[in-house]
Write a protein that binds this DNA or RNA. Structure first.
Lengths: 239, 239
DNA sequence: CGCCTGCTTGACCTCGCTCAAGGCCCGTGG
DNA sequence: CCACGGGCCTTGAGCGAGGTCAAGCAGGCG
């Protein structure tokens, strides 16, 4: 890895930065951290004074529902900032934990705020990433409320592949997806048993292979069709 | 009604504004609009150049799913800015329409951006409202994915009452809720038939009355319990 | 070797859906 | 004035997607 400031690397991929902006980003202090698989990063009710950029690994954002069931709202991948919203919300309303071993780069809220105040284009870009997250949540509501299990799963796989590709983490139609069937169940609101059967269905239809921490999409068009997937909500082509 | 600038009224309720901030807000141009009940405000794919503050009425944000079913993601009430996210997302990923007759105050994106650049505290506050929306979407995922129909409905009613109270639209435990059973079904991902039966159940348990465009909560504690409702995700007490 | 985590399979059950019909209220036209 | 139509709400009957329970299997690790 290079020694580049991680936030600089991220923003540079989104924006043409001026020299002044680059310098200001360089001023943001970085506190590196490593978390092992299954480790807690923060909890509902926490009042963080910093946010982190995920450098490596997979992180998930979830809540406990009444019955003791966990609902996962999002899987975050390298390059994402899963708790950026804590910059303006005083406490967290969700749990954040490491699905796999992770490397994080924490950045103090004070520094981020200073950066935003001095460089509105950067503020807008960070704001925008939280808006894309919101859009993904909206689509999740549709996914879980409207689509049958098989379609729901297909939709998730489409999304994860596309986001991985956009983040430069995929190789062709293959991307890291280090999830257990239980994880998928908690994301999709389905029982493990049913996840298992739906996965088999996707496999026998020859749409995907999934296992050993990887997803390979064998028939993208069919998966898109089955998952009722339209990528616009990811706002990848916006700029 | 006074002749106060509507955005000023909104922000003043959230922030102690300086004179300079007040003046800057006053510079934001307002284009009033009236929409009749059931009217379309904007559509998925639109590229708005302005956002609006809802002055009166109820607006909903929804998407069409594959099967031709509509999924409503949020009901917005007076004081909300349902398409504020279009300030930074080039096109809309959802439909926005008027549930009831509405009065809107449109504000050009250019003006809003200028305001945000000059007054970062206001930018933060607007950013924050979009983050609260995102938090509500997250809770919606939990609601739809995890809770049984009756509980889901109870949760929605808790949320609508609390948000109405916070917006000053409620009288005691009563608030406007001008929804048909079909609307509720599209919000909760349930069939009309089932909505009807669940409503009856809530009524016979004496938890609520609902009809003529109003919701009255007769037993708040029981409704909260049934709906597995914890209000923290609304971030009302944050400040 | 034995345990634990994750995957798989079968049997049964239930929540919520669909289909179908009927009732109520209100606005419109004859 | 009444007839008709269209929203919206209500009720009953049957069905199916997905849940629960229970058991067994495979592989990695102490």
């Amino acid at each position: 890895m290079t020694t580049t400031h991680p936030l600089l690397a991220k923003l540079e991929s989104l924006l043409d930065l001026t020299e002044a902006e680059r310098n200001a980003i360089g001023q943001v202090r970085i506190q590196p951290a490593e978390i092992q698989a299954d480790g807690t990063i923060s909890r509902e009710g926490d009042r963080p004074s910093r946010s982190f950029l995920l450098l490596e690994g997979m992180v998930s954002l979830s809540k406990m529902a009444g019955g003791g069931n966990r609902q996962i709202m999002m899987f975050y991948i390298a390059g994402d900032m899963p708790d950026l919203h804590s910059l303006h919300l005083k406490f967290l309303d969700s749990d954040i934990w490491a699905v796999t071993a992770c490397r994080l780069a924490y950045m103090p809220h004070d520094d981020l705020r200073r950066l935003c105040y001095a460089h509105p284009r950067i503020a807008d870009e960070l704001w925008r990433t939280t808006l894309v997250d919101a859009s993904i949540y909206r689509e999740s509501v549709v996914n879980v409320a409207q689509r049958p299990a098989l379609s729901r799963m297909a939709h998730l796989f489409c999304e994860m592949l596309l986001r991985s590709q956009a983040a430069g983490l995929a190789q062709g139609q293959t991307c890291p997806l280090p999830l257990t069937q239980a994880d998928l169940g908690e994301m999709l609101g389905l029982s493990i048993v049913h996840i298992n059967r739906m996965l088999q269905e996707l496999r026998t239809r020859d749409l995907i292979t999934f296992g050993q921490g990887r997803l390979r999409v064998r028939d993208w068009d069919a998966l898109v069709e089955l998952g009722d997937f339209r990528a616009d909500y990811l706002h990848l082509r916006d700029r």
